[in-house]
Amino acid sequence: MTFPTITIELYGMPRARAGVRELVVSAGTVGDALAEVVANCPALADVVSADGRLASQYLLSLDGKHFVSNVLQPLQSGDRLLLLSSDAGG
């Protein structure tokens, strides 16, 4: 099965830790995309928590429009996932 090609943009702590601005990966769901982040960026191994969810210190936005937390959410070709640090304040 071929997964759609999506782009993961990294900002803040994720970018600083991974040392890259974006990743282009094949992923059918948000969970697949997070697995690709972990595989490609060992410094972001903590992006997935023990229960398989997005760890609380991170946020994900789909195309800058909606924040997503459901790892089963399907992705489509051309989607852009934004991986951000949580806690915007200060």
Binding site: G12, M13, A16, R17, A55, Q57, S85, D87, G90
Partner: peptide, 9 residues
């Protein structure tokens, strides 16, 4: 991890 953002960046 909850304060990592403030420490790191």
């Amino acid at each position: 991890p909850a304060t990592a953002k403030y420490r790191e960046l």
